[in-house]
Write a protein that binds this DNA or RNA. Structure first.
Lengths: 227, 227
DNA sequence: GCCAAAGCTGACCGAATGGTCAAGAATCAA
DNA sequence: TTGATTCTTGACCATTCGGTCAGCTTTGGC
């Protein structure tokens, strides 16, 4: 009762937390499907099983609700960014990278689509994030990739395009789910399918970029190194 | 009704043609940015420099206008599907495939985003097309890819996932343009950039799938590959 | 049991939505 | 010039939009 409440008293009571979760889940679905402008609070309220006024009571406004969803998605994204260094094995890092992105598409398809919808619309709410935080994240990764290329651990590909390749090919299975299902003729992709696709993408990327084991590094592409 | 006006469907008078083109171009932009529901006829009319009533006069309804745009995009898509056979050189075909998809993203970014928005929303208007025409197209391509794998001209990858890989990684540069620009810090991608990206994707795909020259085919991969 | 705080919601607001319509303006073959 | 056709558009309609608010009920610490 009273005492048990203090532990998780980060914010609001149990009622508030429950209702907010219901609203967030409903809103994520609807925003993902119809975009920001195309979504009505009425539709969200119905999905959440609450009157419209109640949605506004908890969320303040449509805009605040939307921004909150984007921020939640950015948090999920940030939890994915394990640190890497040039000392790691490229093959392992790339495989883990692809796998975690694929699981993001699997576990949060609505969130992925929400993100996609926001960017498709010109990223009016995310421009700052894209050219700030996310850009830094990409640049730091790119530096490691370049280091690997210099050491002859992989072909000297432009790391930026490689990251975009991995993002796009994994995100595809969330964002374009309707197309994937229509073309494959299935009702849903199984865990097995996802596993196979992950393996396929990993193989193509690693082989396609000429990734080698640290032990058997080929001739470096950067400055010559005497052996 | 009219007396001799019936045959001239494609003609339709200079005024009509000019206004329809202006409306279609404006509508493609707005629909791509805000989705079907998020787009108002008022916004389209303003983009086209016409009163709202005039848009409805030419297009009949919002729905008809939207469907017409989708059909126009499907036509562009269809013009891209050159026939291929198992006798062709896999490397050449894949390179041409990637190149033409990349040019589609380049030449019709709004149309690409319109398509993406439709699929993101669950493809309410395109389900039939996806599981019909497009599915057949993919299957016929997939058969050729399998034939190549059987002949040892490439690794026995699942052709469907390969096609999705090519689609997603090329389409990315239209659909996620805002993200690409934000992260690269540019205002636009140059023709040179696009050329480099195309080369990169081509290299990774061809090398990653172990594509070989018809002359030097490796040991064929045994039996048919049906999953 | 008390009562402030939190939760709830129907009524309501001005603005915007897709679409209709009628009446006038421009066009064009005869 | 004429008369039919096409084009143009502001006024208008019912509905829905995001958001406010007042007044109600429920909750929970004391």
């Amino acid at each position: 009762m009273a005492k048990a409440e203090q532990l998780s008293e980060q914010e609001g009571g149990a009622i508030r937390r429950r209702n907010e979760q219901a609203i967030l889940a409903a809103a994520e679905r609807v925003f993902a499907r119809h975009g920001y402008r195309g979504t009505s609070l009425q539709a969200i309220a119905e999905q959440a099983g609450l009157p419209k006024s109640n949605v506004l009571y908890y969320m303040g406004s449509k805009r605040k609700l939307y921004v909150r969803l984007l921020e939640r998605m950015m948090e999920r994204w940030n939890m994915m960014l394990d640190d890497i260094s040039a000392e790691d094995d490229p093959a392992e890092v790339l495989a883990a990278f692809i796998r975690s992105k694929m699981q993001m598409s699997r576990r949060h398809p609505e969130g992925s689509r929400l993100f996609a919808s926001e960017i498709l619309g010109g990223a009016p709410f995310l421009q700052e994030y894209l050219s700030g935080e996310l850009r830094d994240w990409v640049q730091s990764r790119a530096a490691v990739f370049r280091e690997w290329a210099d050491r002859g651990l992989m072909d000297p590909v432009d790391p930026i395009w490689l990251i975009f390749l991995i993002w796009s090919s994994t995100q595809h299975y969330a964002d374009f789910e309707a197309q994937v299902l229509g073309i494959t003729g299935r009702e849903a992709l199984s865990d097995d399918d996802l596993e196979r696709i992950t393996d396929f993408l990993t193989r193509v990327v690693i082989k396609g970029c000429g990734v080698r084991h640290p032990d058997q590094a080929a001739a470096p592409h950067g400055q010559p190194v005497h052996s």
